[in-house]
Design a protein around this nucleic acid. Structure first.
Lengths: 359, 359
DNA sequence: TTCTCAAAAGAGACCGGTCTCTTATTGCGT
DNA sequence: ACGCAATAAGAGACCGGTCTCTTTTGAGAA
């Protein structure tokens, strides 16, 4: 690669110092806003900086100070409205405190998550917020912690990692949602999640390494069993990782002879695709299939019928975790906090009694 | 602020060099992957790096090389699905080429846009992608260009700024959309946009400084006039900047005695809110009001009726602009390109003949 | 065996800031 | 008028890499 031409080498403190006839140190004091300088000199330096159009090099600044003013965020999938809203919460809190955010996608894949963490540490971010995609391999998260950079966990807890964590009570809220369906009379309830496992078939909770989803499935199964439902786990479906995959899962689920009469979707992207498949097959909500989804995505209130949802405080989730992290960045030392934000269910029109279709 | 304890000072090339009994320069050659080193020494250094758990400091690296491997992106509103999808396109292209993305929101406000640009330049990003919120004040964009960093424009062109630009033909596609409504018999067609202007009331195109929206309104008005509609500009509505504002605009629009029989919404967030207001007022789509919106957001296909949309190639828009920028970052020099991506209309069920309600 | 020359390793400047330490200037009390 | 401290400015090291230039090494040719 040919070295690019000298370009317009950018203006440095030394340039400004020379123009203002002061030492580099003095110019730096003015431009960096530290130390103590007389008003006359300050004015001179400022004037020189202005005419030269000086722009500080944050890179150099970060290198000496050791802090970059950047918070690294690693989420599963930015396109998922859940994450974009959470990221918005993080960004707002960060901006308010004078921090910037650099965002990385893990695609819910552990190798990509590790790569993202490595990259962000390389960029010397001041702290990290991660939604860990797996609870098995967390060596890279321990590394962050060990490197002295604060880490905070979003939406998913890691029992083995004692750091600031903000989640919702997934088990409890899944129980409530399931109970709504059970109370409506449903006995064949499906749970569809994006999380995948070896063999792509659900066998037991031990397969699920995403804490939020494990808790949800746990809650779901508990209520099902309490309601006297036989082997509820046969309706747990994994691997709805993309619209196409979700479509495949939903098609299979709805075409079998023992198709469920109700579905609980683990996120709004999944619910949207399931809703499409239901429509496409000429089925009706809630007459033929009842539907509840996690995340109060905007579209859920404009469908006919509108969808009953688990309304997680997504924005607050992001905002809180960022605030926790920032407090630590500002030097606060206290034992790690595990915040659990309250969650509610918004009942709309997508739940009804089960269809009494003969098999 | 108390200086934080020494922490675990991170491992540097010098540390590795010492451990491997070689000079700093040699260790740097191995770890930086440049220059020429013998295999035995390379192995030694690698081993030392491994045991010490060396992580390169990208900041220091960037400072000497002058390139950071980061592309700065400034968009109007990350929460708007239009932008999140475009950003996804940018991120994918960037990752494929080994670049990272740092994202900033302008909130469509020129001062914030300037601040964001200043910040990103300070962070020494290699190049910038901006959706300029105004065509009046572009001094900060000229600055970028002048500083030798490539700039590319997304979704909005700036006639005065000759840089790589990727847009769609907004005027043309707005004409097509309007024609669909006019052909259906509508004579009272409203155009609702988030862009605001002094006085919040539309008078003429000269008020509108967002190129895409100006072109759309231009196309809209042209077709209206061609169809013999009298003073179509009285139905142009500005300032739908938030759900609340949109709701206010829509309420006012739909409550007057001469309410329009069709609405063209400038983005999917606006359309969603308008759709809600229509429903809330007991009106039906398309019997009472026809509706077309820009951006094929996911929800538009699951409403009853599904919404007719202008399907901009949003992901491709982001991907293309990033690719253009990256080619330039890799040293390609050629006259700036202005790419205009093809756009189509997806006709669904939200357009019908006008209601023949007596005023 | 000696000489040549390319390959491999080392020394140290540099990037653009911050920051400590030193030096020069000023005001003030006595 | 003198000493003293406080204040303002300067000198230069440093952060952790890259990279140029110099020195050392060793293989092959004469």
């Amino acid at each position: 690669m040919k070295r690019t031409a000298p370009k317009t080498r950018s203006i440095t403190v030394s340039d400004v110092a020379r123009a203002a006839n002061v030492s580099k140190a003095t110019a730096a004091r003015v431009l960096g806003g530290y130390g103590v300088v007389s008003d006359t000199i300050r004015a001179d330096v400022m004037a020189a900086a202005k005419t030269l159009d000086y722009r500080p090099n944050e890179l150099a600044r970060s290198m000496t100070t050791g802090r970059s003013g950047i918070i690294g965020v690693v989420v599963g999938d930015i396109e998922n409205p859940f994450f974009s809203l959470a990221v918005r919460g993080i960004s707002d809190a960060a901006r308010a405190a004078g921090f910037n955010v650099i965002l990385a996608n893990s695609g819910e894949r552990i190798e990509m998550e590790k790569a993202a963490v490595r990259l962000l540490i390389g960029k010397r971010v001041d702290g990290l917020i991660v939604t860990p995609s797996e609870s098995r391999d967390i060596s890279h998260l321990r590394d962050i912690h060990r490197s002295g950079r604060p880490l905070a966990l979003l939406d998913r807890a890691l029992p083995d990692l004692d750091v600031d964590t903000v989640t919702v009570d997934d088990r409890c809220i899944a129980m409530q949602a399931t109970r709504i369906l059970a109370d409506a009379g449903h006995r064949n309830i499906a749970y569809v999640t994006a999380v995948d496992a070896e063999g792509h078939e659900y066998r037991d909770l031990g397969q699920i390494y995403t804490s939020s989803v494990r808790e949800r499935i746990d809650g779901f199964l508990t209520v099902c069993r309490d309601a006297g439902i036989d082997r509820p786990e046969r309706y747990v479906r994994l691997g709805a990782t993309s619209p196409d995959q979700t479509r495949r899962v939903a098609d299979k689920l709805l075409s079998g002879p023992d198709r469920p009469t109700a579905i609980l979707a683990s996120d709004s992207l999944i619910a949207l695709e399931i809703f499409r498949v239901i429509r496409q097959r000429g089925l009706r909500v809630p007459e033929d299939i009842s539907l509840i989804t996690f995340h109060d995505a905007d579209w859920t209130s404009v469908t006919t019928p509108p969808i009953t949802v688990v309304d997680q405080p997504v924005y607050a989730l992001g905002k809180s975790v960022a605030e926790l992290l920032i407090r630590r960045l500002k030097g606060e030392t206290r034992p790690p906090e595990r915040l659990i934000l309250p969650t509610a269910i918004i009942e709309r029109g997508s739940v009804g009694p089960p269809s009494n279709r003969k098999p």
